[in-house]
Design a protein around this nucleic acid. Structure first.
Lengths: 228, 228
DNA sequence: GCAAAAGTGTTTGATATACACCCATGC
DNA sequence: GCATGGGTGTATATCAAACACTTTTGC
């Protein structure tokens, strides 16, 4: 299992990383999942892209640390934040590092509207979540795992609206589902599904300016944003 | 949030703990969930019961550490082992400790047959999972969380058979479900549910010695035991 | 034969899907 | 008026729960 040969009395280092998702329109105008990565500026994996994160401070809670990272790298606030998994294989650096690092990974969602304001710099760039380059450490696997969790969670819980602004049409909400799940949904059935769960309520307003019948606007009903 | 006042450059300590479940017949003969706890022999929470666990060794994988703990405290091997959650609130010791400890918690299942051989000593005792005393740290919450995960997992995955020995009757399997979920299930519907999932197959044998029609024996079909 | 659990069959209701259709607006 | 997506209605399939019934053993 382990390829580590050096033994020491040192304890493993603890880091917190965050997989951040948002939705952005791609070239053909459809929404697509995007995630920000940071370029590593030192060994191991120097120059390669990696998940944003850093060592856990003694006086900082895990979720707080994840939020911090998000703010520091993108300038954004998470609309949703949840612990994903703790990754700690002895050989997860693939032999590229002597140091043992255990990463507690969170995953976060930010609004599509806010995400447009996100910082893009030489060392922070957004990628399409399904077209990532080869990342440092085991970070490709981690993103895959987070994607699976997001898709799964979308189906049994009701977090889709966090991608949207406060008021939205059901067509917009459906577009979120379709982008995340990667398949088309029947508008009629989708409407019934959403209405039956009681997660949205009408605002009373409609969205004007479309070429056709103006759709009703909805808002999300009160629902706990997770942190644990 | 935090009640910590001291700041230091120290890094948080990393520990791995394990919530261990098995099924044991209670006084009325019905199966009930039991879990082993260890008595703390030093501050904080000296003398109180706590989850088995210990600091993570630099050259040890997370799941391996959890297995180790299980073996050391009970003498048993896990039949199922999965990461539960990383608990790391700054104040999770409730002010009783100056040290910051982040615990990566696993949950494990051991067979009811094996569990009878488990060690019971002055400092290791088995408790009914729903009648625990007040535990050290936030361990009561952790066990509750693990219980929820077990019940949930039982319904959508097929891990119930790990409590049983290799060959079992459907009535025994149903008894496991009933004990974990805490409600009775229709024998006929239960049979169909199990058969439709294809998780069991007939051994060809029947169980003799009952007062009535001898039930068929089944074994679990090949299925991945998780570790990640 | 009778009791008791094993095992089978049938009915019913809830829910998801497919798809036909009407509605309201901009042009 | 007509194109277009918004929104509603309805038939069908699938599946879970309830429950009646038959089978096979020990006594």
């Amino acid at each position: 299992m382990s390829i580590a040969t050096a033994r020491s009395t040192e304890t493993p280092t603890l880091a917190v990383s965050t997989v951040i998702f948002t939705l952005r329109p791609n070239d053909s105008g459809a929404l697509q999942l995007a995630t920000p990565l940071v370029r590593r500026i030192r060994a191991p994996f120097e120059g390669q892209w990696a998940l944003p994160g850093g060592p856990l401070q003694v006086n900082e809670d895990l979720a707080t640390s994840a939020s911090h990272t998000l703010r520091d790298t993108t300038g954004l606030e998470p609309r949703y934040l949840e612990q994903l998994y703790a990754f700690g294989s002895v050989d997860r650096a693939g032999g590229a590092s002597a140091e043992r690092v255990v990463s507690i990974v969170y995953w976060a969602l930010v609004g599509a509207d806010e995400a447009e304001l996100a910082i893009d710099s030489e060392n922070v760039q957004w990628f399409w979540a399904d077209e990532l380059p080869r990342l440092a450490f085991d970070h490709n696997q981690i993103v895959e795992y987070a994607l699976g969790r997001l898709r799964n969670k979308l189906e049994y819980s009701r977090i889709a609206h966090v991608f949207l602004s406060e008021a939205f049409t059901l067509a917009q909400l459906r577009e979120v589902y379709e982008a995340v799940l990667g398949r088309e949904l029947d508008p009629g059935n989708f409407r019934r599904m959403v209405e039956s769960t009681g997660t949205v309520e009408e605002t009373g307003e409609v969205l004007a300016g479309t070429r056709h019948r103006p759709p009703k606007l909805y808002r999300a009903t009160i629902q706990a944003g997770e942190t644990k």
